[in-house]
Simulated scan of single mutants.
Amino acid sequence: MDYDAWKETIMCYCAADSFEPETLKSRLQTDLAWGGEFRLAFDAALAAGQNEVLEWIGELNFQFDSEQQVSDWLRSVYDFLFSQGAAPSAPGQG
């Protein structure tokens, strides 16, 4: 999975108007091949830093107060999807 496909998936399941991380997690667990590709792309996006993410993160229609808040939020989404993290909240929602 390339970066654009990963971004499109994040936009689909984690934007303000379609915030459904539980549905994404279920899909990742159901389609293991796709889920593995998505995880590798997410790993690469996190490792690459935030510059590219910061270019489009506003399209999610959330208000982030800082780059650190963006990073923390992405990490919480990752932890929820791939480990035992709590379900992420929409930024500004708790």
Score class of each variant (00 low, 15 high):
residue 3 Y to P: 03
residue 4 D to A: 14
residue 4 D to P: 01
residue 5 A to N: 13
residue 6 W to T: 00
residue 8 E to S: 15
residue 9 T to H: 10
residue 9 T to N: 13
residue 12 C to V: 12
residue 13 Y to Q: 10
residue 13 Y to N: 09
residue 14 C to R: 05
residue 14 C to Q: 08
residue 14 C to S: 13
residue 16 A to M: 07
residue 16 A to H: 07
residue 18 S to W: 03
residue 19 F to E: 04
residue 19 F to D: 05
residue 21 P to F: 07
residue 27 R to K: 13
residue 27 R to I: 10
residue 29 Q to A: 13
residue 33 A to Y: 02
residue 34 W to R: 02
residue 34 W to C: 01
residue 35 G to T: 02
residue 36 G to R: 09
residue 38 F to M: 09
residue 40 L to V: 05
residue 40 L to I: 04
residue 41 A to E: 04
residue 42 F to L: 04
residue 42 F to P: 04
residue 44 A to C: 02
residue 44 A to M: 06
residue 44 A to W: 00
residue 44 A to P: 00
residue 45 A to L: 12
residue 46 L to R: 13
residue 47 A to T: 01
residue 47 A to F: 00
residue 47 A to V: 00
residue 48 A to E: 08
residue 49 G to D: 02
residue 51 N to E: 14
residue 54 L to I: 00
residue 55 E to I: 00
residue 57 I to M: 12
residue 57 I to Y: 04
residue 59 E to N: 09
residue 61 N to F: 05
residue 62 F to R: 01
residue 63 Q to L: 02
residue 64 F to C: 07
residue 64 F to H: 03
residue 64 F to N: 04
residue 66 S to M: 03
residue 67 E to Y: 07
residue 67 E to H: 11
residue 69 Q to T: 05
residue 74 L to E: 10
residue 77 V to I: 15
residue 80 F to Y: 15
residue 80 F to K: 11
residue 80 F to M: 08
residue 81 L to H: 08
residue 83 S to F: 12
residue 85 G to H: 10
residue 86 A to F: 12
residue 90 A to P: 06
residue 90 A to Y: 04
residue 91 P to M: 07
residue 91 P to A: 08
residue 92 G to W: 01
residue 92 G to A: 03
residue 92 G to V: 03
residue 92 G to E: 05
residue 93 Q to L: 11
residue 93 Q to F: 12
